[in-house]
């Protein structure tokens, strides 16, 4: 199998199973956190990955960054198979692949100055002389809207928004081609959130990066992304262009997810679809369609047949048995 160089990132049937602890009464079972996921990200594109907590979206982030080993499947980066690369082979690729985490309070080392944090990649890859390193760091701090004097501060002296800017500066200092953003604005206040979102958009225009934007907030996904993947219990249930997903959602889960977003508009019709029941555990995934236990349209066929993603239109795929071509 070969990857396509047109894409920055491609995954084929990626699975990640974790071993659940075995007890005296229970056989060892597996948590099927990610259960066969195909994702592709084009150059200079922002791809959104949405789903509720526990659906496996952060696990995917860790898999494509090679922070965790896949159980099964293949990952291609710019057409190159990186699934089983060794540590030192990975190093070169890590230059082009960066990450911004959700919580800027725990993703920055509190005992390092902002300069040390942001310039760390330069030291790692031995780029430039000491003076050049300082210049590059200053430039990147300026780019993300921090003052050069902030260089000598420590994370606790900065606000949440500023810290997230530091995390972004560290991610983009080597001009990567691909950045995974794992809920980068969820921990921020509304007024700061829009500042950071705008910054991410501007940086993409300048550096021509691709983002894999993981979020549970569908309105930010709508603002930032070009294409969207909707995930439920370890699987992609619907994928497509932003316009398709938001204006013509087909999978019942996507419909419910969209109707659940509280919109800042008064007098909206209150025809909210409520999701029945609780999220099933990824240890005991229902037979057949994994959404059937909570789906308002499920019937007997859904119990036995596991739907696969099917093309239903231009750049639009759905995994639901009820949807015909």
């Amino acid at each position: 199998m070969k990857g396509c160089p047109e894409y920055v990132l491609q995954t084929f049937g990626v699975k990640k199973y974790f071993d659940a602890s075995r007890t005296f009464f229970r056989q060892a079972k597996q948590v099927r956190a990610v259960d066969g996921v195909d994702i592709c990200v084009r150059h200079n594109e922002t791809v959104g990955l949405v789903g509720e907590s526990g659906c496996g979206k952060s696990t995917i982030a860790r898999l494509v960054l090679k922070l965790k080993r896949v159980t099964e499947g293949k990952i291609f980066f710019e057409g190159e198979d990186i699934t089983f690369l060794k540590k030192d082979e990975l190093r070169e690729i890590r230059k082009d692949m960066q990450v911004v985490f959700q919580d800027p309070y725990s993703s920055l080392n509190g005992r390092q100055s902002i300069y040390t944090i942001v310039s760390a990649p330069l030291y790692r890859f031995k780029i430039g002389t000491a003076k050049e390193k300082e210049e590059i760091t200053k430039e990147v701090l300026d780019r993300v809207g921090l003052r050069p004097s902030d260089m000598f501060k420590y994370p606790h002296q900065l606000s949440g928004g500023q810290r997230q800017r530091v995390a972004i500066a560290r991610a983009i200092i080597l001009h990567p081609k691909f950045v995974v953003c794992d809920e980068p604005v969820s921990a921020l206040d509304v007024s700061v959130r829009s500042q950071v979102l705008n910054l991410m958009k501007d940086l993409q225009d300048v550096f021509k990066m691709s983002y894999l934007f993981i979020s549970h907030d569908l309105s930010t996904v709508y603002y930032l992304c070009d294409r969207v993947y909707v995930m439920y219990l370890g699987r992609i249930v619907e994928e497509g262009s932003k316009e398709e997903i938001f204006s013509n959602p087909l999978h019942p889960y996507t419909k419910i997810l969209l109707s659940a977003i509280p919109q800042p508009v008064v007098g909206r019709k209150k025809d909210i679809l409520l999701l029945a029941g609780e999220n099933p555990s990824p240890i005991d995934i229902p037979s057949g369609c994994r959404f059937r236990t909570r789906c308002p349209f499920a019937d007997e066929t859904c119990m036995s047949c596991d739907p696969v993603l099917m093309e239903v239109g231009m750049d639009h795929k759905v995994a639901c048995l009820k949807i015909k071509k």
Binding site: Q162, V192, S194, L197, S219, Y222, F246
Partner: peptide
């Protein structure tokens, strides 16, 4: 006004979000 303007709206094309400067 700033708070309301800084929210992304689904179904509306927004090239940039309004943001309140500073902290």
């Amino acid at each position: 006004k700033g708070l309301l303007a800084s929210l992304p709206h689904i179904g509306e094309k927004q090239n940039r979000l309004y943001s309140i400067e500073g902290t």
